[in-house]
Design a protein around this nucleic acid. Structure first.
Lengths: 341, 341
DNA sequence: TTGAAAGCGCTAACAT
DNA sequence: ATGTTAGCGCTTTCAA
């Protein structure tokens, strides 16, 4: 027999209104009654019916706020596509998505952006944000109040969030290592690492993943130099040029963050097509470089799925479809070469 | 303003019952009235509300029939997982999924299986079936009657189906070619092709994709032999052993279908780890062979997503969410090596 | 051939 | 603090 608000009300000997109030912690219910109803709901395994709620609350949809540092970062275009698809898929189930886009990773900016989403009465959040104390505290405070928070693309350490939806950066790095081992340039690898920032956890994990996997496979290699691009193409080009001139025996370039186009420009300028360059993600310019053979392969993380599933998870949580603890949603680590781009 | 059955009824000057009858072609409506209502619905861009229907028709759910040749074929395990997830996701929106599993690709068996799904009053079908005239005719006849039919994993030529959900086999083959070119064994490639069946379109496309890509990249290669495994591991082991003994200079084995484990067994038996073996999909035994380094990489096709999306598409069609023509859903071509398995 | 009314599960406004 | 009621969009009787 199917468990509904009605059947719960009957079982508890109260009205449906009371059950509804208890289920949504709206107060104005005698604590003992509330407890009884909650117990019953758990016992019978009550799961709210989304169709019923969508219909009843058509004019008060669930509001999910999404924060993306997407301004000036083409990577997030695909994430946004996924978010919009989820929004469309769940629109007639009573979902409204508010998207807040910011530029870069300034803590104060992110902090303010989250506040602005809260002011708009969002009941759940999907955040692609920075791993900094003020943000961490805000996430934990909101979580403690019962707000579902999904961390998207970038996790924040030591937080009680609903779940993380994104890539396994270390696996992505290891995959690059595995590919390098497989592709077996004859000479020992002399690697130039062009990283976005030494402060970005994801970038560091990609580096660790690479070196660990090369070591695990017993491949001879050396990290000749590590330079920072600050995710800027101009800067990436400059530091790559410098490093390649200074260390002429470098035969592999590993680009952990943005700035891929800049690295490509440097390789073209120096006319060193024999250098084995690899990168992450598939923004338009990176695709072109793979097509041209400048970048040999790029390791991707299904950004569209990340956007879609972050919103889906938040919606599921709000509509009470989720168990109390949920697994993280780790997207696949996808190797793209010319042929499957 | 939102377009509902009610608003349509008002606009047409009839009752909601009449509009409903027209929208579902239930007859018993004067043709001119029916036409007027249909025109209005199109004009106003009416899209049925899934929540409303789910609630009203809770005891008469949409019934979607799924046919899989999954008995004895581990590949379909993941497809089934996806199907079940979709079934769960849409259960409270009034979806019921009937799964019919058969063994192999016998036309008569598949034909009968489809009939059995129809007898159970399925209103839409997801079929992973054979490309044979009787099946083709049945699909076209049902499609003509307005039944949404999704072809899953394997397309059937010359059919008017709703859409195809599955892999791009040629791209998968080309991806293998691209990887071989990248991985650059020094000597010219001498390839043994172990195909499932020369009658399977997918297997043939994988072969064509490989050779075309190698040619495109100007890679020296030769297809030394092509043998058939009939997707049986025992047979695959036998024919692989024979071929490798007969052509000792083969340095690459390309397994287009099932029987990967058999090929692995042959390679282990002959102790020829230097042979560059590649395969498709990631059934348990294939994963093990990749872990062991016997298979260098395997190219996968997201079977779980295929199952999920086939059901999702069929549901969307039944619930009137889809435009008149829909794109095929082509899953990604995914290279898996030891590190990202 | 058509209309009217009931009800699916839920929420919100109103009444007690 | 609790109960009652109306109604969301749709389908399905039952009448007419």
């Amino acid at each position: 027999m199917k468990v509904t608000v009605k059947s719960l009300a009957q079982a508890a000997g109260v009205s449906r209104g009371t059950v509804d109030r208890v289920l949504h912690n709206r107060g104005s219910v005698k604590p003992e009654v509330a407890l009884r109803i909650k117990t019953l709901a758990k016992e019978f395994g009550y799961v709210p019916n989304r169709a019923g709620r969508a219909l009843a609350a058509a004019k008060t949809p669930f509001k999910i706020g999404v924060l993306l540092p997407s301004i000036g970062n083409l990577f997030f275009d695909d994430v946004t596509v996924g978010i919009n698809k989820a929004a469309a898929d769940y629109a007639d189930l009573g979902l409204e998505v508010v998207l807040k886009e910011v530029q870069g990773y300034d803590v104060a900016v992110h902090d303010a952006a989250i506040d602005s989403l809260l002011e708009k009465n969002c009941q759940a959040l999907c955040l692609s944000t920075v791993d900094a104390p003020p943000i961490r505290e805000k996430i934990n405070a909101l979580s403690a109040k019962g707000m579902p928070i999904v961390l998207l693309n970038t996790d924040v350490s030591d937080t009680q969030r609903l779940c993380y939806v994104g890539s396994d950066y270390k696996c992505a790095g290891a995959t690059c290592g595995g590919m390098l081992a497989l592709c077996a340039i004859q000479a020992p690898l002399k690697i130039l690492i062009v990283t976005g920032s030494k402060l970005m956890l994801g970038h560091n994990l990609r580096i660790a993943g690479l070196t660990e996997e090369l070591t695990r496979q017993g491949r001879a290699f050396e990290v000749t130099a590590v330079v920072e691009s600050n995710d800027s193409d101009i800067r990436a080009q400059e530091v790559t040029l410098q490093a390649l001139k200074r260390y002429p025996d470098i035969n592999c370039v590993y680009v952990t963050g943005a700035g891929v186009q800049g690295v490509g420009a440097a390789l073209i300028a120096l006319d060193r097509p024999e250098i084995f360059a690899i990168s992450f993600d598939e923004v338009y310019t990176t695709k072109e470089l793979v097509q041209e053979g400048i970048i040999k392969f790029t390791v991707c993380q299904q950004p569209e799925r990340q956007g879609y599933h972050a919103v889906k998870r938040a919606y599921q949580s709000l509509s009470g479809q989720l168990p109390s603890t949920v697994d993280d949603f780790i997207t696949d680590t996808i190797i793209k070469i010319k042929a499957n781009l």
